[in-house]
Write a protein that binds this DNA or RNA. Sequence first.
DNA 1: AAATAATCGAGACGGTACGTCTTGTCTTAGA
DNA 2: TCTAAGACAAGACGTACCGTCTCGATTATTT
Lengths: 202, 202, 202, 202
Amino acid sequence: MITKPTPVPAKKRTSIGSRRNPETETAVLAAARDLISERGYAGFSVDEVARRAGAGKTTIYRWYPTKADLFIAIYTTERSTFVPVPENGNLIDELEQYTTSLWHFWASHPAGAALRGLIAEAQGTPEALSALRDRFLPDRTADVRRMLSSAAARGELRADEVDAKVALWVGFSWYKLLVGELHDEDVIRSVMMQIAEVRRNS
Amino acid sequence: MITKPTPVPAKKRTSIGSRRNPETETAVLAAARDLISERGYAGFSVDEVARRAGAGKTTIYRWYPTKADLFIAIYTTERSTFVPVPENGNLIDELEQYTTSLWHFWASHPAGAALRGLIAEAQGTPEALSALRDRFLPDRTADVRRMLSSAAARGELRADEVDAKVALWVGFSWYKLLVGELHDEDVIRSVMMQIAEVRRNS
Amino acid sequence: MITKPTPVPAKKRTSIGSRRNPETETAVLAAARDLISERGYAGFSVDEVARRAGAGKTTIYRWYPTKADLFIAIYTTERSTFVPVPENGNLIDELEQYTTSLWHFWASHPAGAALRGLIAEAQGTPEALSALRDRFLPDRTADVRRMLSSAAARGELRADEVDAKVALWVGFSWYKLLVGELHDEDVIRSVMMQIAEVRRNS
Amino acid sequence: MITKPTPVPAKKRTSIGSRRNPETETAVLAAARDLISERGYAGFSVDEVARRAGAGKTTIYRWYPTKADLFIAIYTTERSTFVPVPENGNLIDELEQYTTSLWHFWASHPAGAALRGLIAEAQGTPEALSALRDRFLPDRTADVRRMLSSAAARGELRADEVDAKVALWVGFSWYKLLVGELHDEDVIRSVMMQIAEVRRNS
DNA sequence: AAATAATCGAGACGGTACGTCTTGTCTTAGA
DNA sequence: TCTAAGACAAGACGTACCGTCTCGATTATTT
């Protein structure tokens, strides 16, 4: 009763036969991106994506059997473009720059909302949880892991600390994303210094 | 879809007048606790809580205008009972014991699922987000903040590090909760050592 | 969600002890009248009457055990004032004037909506049906019956026709009320002539 | 609270694609018919129809946007089968036979309850009122109008009386239906004679 | 005066219906 | 074989109302 749901399918697309139609693929992803950034996790529905994309629901479910898969797809497009991986030999600077870039990316692109959706979804269904943990996380923490490993190789920290530090970094970034405090960039540097700190406690 | 929905309202309760009926309150909370631990966030519905508690939906909505409020209520009961706050003058030990207790609590009580639900809910609705950030978090991080502040008072770390360390601790614990790795207790000690580490980088 | 429901109880009334409070009685009836004329049958609720009247629901239910009773009460006040019973020895004129007055009354006072509500209510609950048939109807058709009986006494129609004619008159008036055609006064005269007609068929 | 709500979906029906499923259509109408005749207007709910029919509520609302539409659908099935239109050249006999058949139909089939529900519903919502007046009535009074017009063509009554007589007939029949006096068939003949009477008053 | 009894407002309560929404499955018809 | 369209069962959402109930205050009558 509230919203006229933007029925505009722009153009008519039809099947191109027994191969996946790339136009449709694009349209679905674009619609999903728009929707998640307009309305957030609540207000995101497969029906609405289909409507906006002018796609059949079946089509969407064929490619993305789980909402989680769809969120991952939304997230993945463009991330590498927008989050450059710095490499200047100074771990703290690298971490700070990378984290800042990432937060900007999250705040300014549908990807942030998509990740929030993915995490939320994972709290409900086991498939989404394993998609998050097994398919999403390893890839997405690779950059930070590499920075830390390089620093360890340079002797700046101990190799057996890397895992813990990665977990700390992911946890911190997610936490700020999930409570909606991405604007709070001032804390980044001091936290990254903390993470970069070599441990001397027994 | 899966289970016979447990229609059994056990006993008949009647109103005790125009003041809140504590029996009903108990029944609702108990039903909510059971439900979230049986079925998780998906599968948790106010309808079902009402059905199990033998309560009217209106009653539930009267007390808990938001699902978030209900989750907080589920979480809050018993937490203090089950998560003792250690105090032995050794920060790392305190953090380790406390975190371990908390993870046990999360893993073994509906509270864990409730917090997961609360965080998920917060990704959808602004009310839930502010409930999480403004009403839930400050209270629930008070213990750790106190431990760290005490340590700072003892000169074991710098006072201006406390906030960052609290955020790191919360982020890390949430992260492990959200990806379902609470069983992975081995990492706790090394991470707590990292958090407890005094920072010497500029 | 739509309407701020006009909560204003103007003044605070309190109990005057172990006797019925006439102020409250007046307030309830006034609120009920206002409500039914503002919102019609749907949109009429005891809750709202209580709210507007500043009365307790229990109080209302004490006096009017059934919604039907409340409708009858709304209807009854003022009817005699507004619907004069003509008496001029000409049956057709009497019927026409009386019917016209009645339709005006129905159209311009809450009473019309109240009767519609009463009839609708009677389709749902047996109590309302018997209130309508046994307590409401006999009284409210007495005037027309008297007109017809007088005409029969004057020899203008047969005595055994009266019942049928009363039923025809009631049916016709209700019908026009129920389909919302009270404005259609042009038909009144021809129908009343038809009703006043003496029957000559065997 | 009274009755075991008969959940029995007998068989599982599934979608037959992007066309309306006639099995479902039948099941919904059957359930609606049963329900209205078992429980009457109060006690009739879309929820319960859906439950009994094993249909989704959305499906029902798709076909019958208004309860009024559903009532009309219940009413319409089978009416022509059960209410034959007599044609023997004698207006009074025709009216009497037709009215008697109709009352029997109303009394013995869900249709009667459905019409009562429709009329009641029309007192609440404008949509239902216009459905009743504009979509239901013209069709359903066509038979009687035809009888009267034929009689007028035969010179038995004046053509300009027909409308008034139709209104009288509808009003009378509804009245008896609405006050639950369909068993009172004895009055039919005398009333029909009255209606059939040619008017001689000026 | 004190005790008793009725009446009041307020509103909590268990139920239940409303009409809308979303999910994931399924079918058709067209390319 | 893939597509858009959309029907479908299931059931949750949050709001509204029903009629019953309990409270504590207020008042009139009885003792």
